[in-house]
């Protein structure tokens, strides 16, 4: 108690009243009222300005986030659509390329076949004409040969026989008959051979 009375007196604070002696759980009216005033002032500031601003900002932020998410979803959907379109186009292009390739192959095959046909036709035509020509040449050669052989043998025979047979009416008949016999093989080789030999020998002799 000595201390209690001592301090305020020495420090010189509030020595004139007993406020300092009051129990610490009894309020000072000034402090209590000021506490209320302080709360009221800050409450006005907070409820009028601070909290509305913050709430508004939260709403904005929520909207911004939701908007952003929506935007992202849209972008994704767009990208998906683009991808699908691209794939469809790619598929189409592949089909187109395949079709073109098939066409080209078919066309090429048909061209080759046509060419081959043409070539064959040409070849057969050439062969045909060559054959014809050969036939004709052979025919003419045969005719010519026949005439020549006829002339030669006639001359030969006339020389051997020693008389001219040209003027004879039967002359041609003899030759033709001879040739026909020659062709049919009726003339005996020995006889003809012997006759020919004999004729040749006699020809040489004469």
């Amino acid at each position: 108690m000595q201390h209690l009375t001592g301090i305020p007196a020495t420090v010189g604070l509030a020595s004139a009243d007993n406020t300092a002696e009051r129990l610490p759980i009894l309020p000072l009216w000034g402090e209590l009222i000021f506490g209320l005033v302080a709360f009221a002032i800050l409450y006005v500031v907070v409820s009028r300005k601070v909290v509305p601003r913050l709430e508004e900002m939260y709403a904005e932020r929520t909207a911004a986030i939701e908007g952003g998410m929506q935007h992202a979803e849209e972008a994704q959907a767009e990208a998906q659509a683009a991808l699908e379109q691209y794939q469809a186009q790619l598929h189409e292009a592949r089909a187109e390329a395949n079709r073109i390739r098939e066409d080209a192959r078919a066309q090429g095959a048909s061209i080759v076949a046509e060419m081959r046909e043409q070539a064959q036709a040409e070849a057969s035509r050439i062969a045909e004409s060559a054959k014809k020509q050969i036939d004709a040449e052979r025919q003419s050669a045969l005719v010519q040969l026949r005439a020549e052989v006829g002339g030669l043998s006639t001359e030969l025979a006339s020389r051997i026989v020693g008389e001219s047979l040209q003027q004879e009416a039967r002359q041609s008949g003899i030759i033709d008959r001879f040739l026909a016999e020659l062709e049919s093989g009726d003339i005996k080789p020995e006889k003809v051979g012997a006759a020919a030999e004999g004729e040749a020998r006699s020809g040489e002799e004469s």
Binding site: L4, I7, P8, L13, A14, A16, D17, T19, A20, E21, R22, P24, L28, W29, G30
Partner: peptide, 14 residues
Amino acid sequence: QEFYQPLIGHGDWA
């Protein structure tokens, strides 16, 4: 008592 520190005036309304 040291928590009571009046700066101006004294008593309840200091």
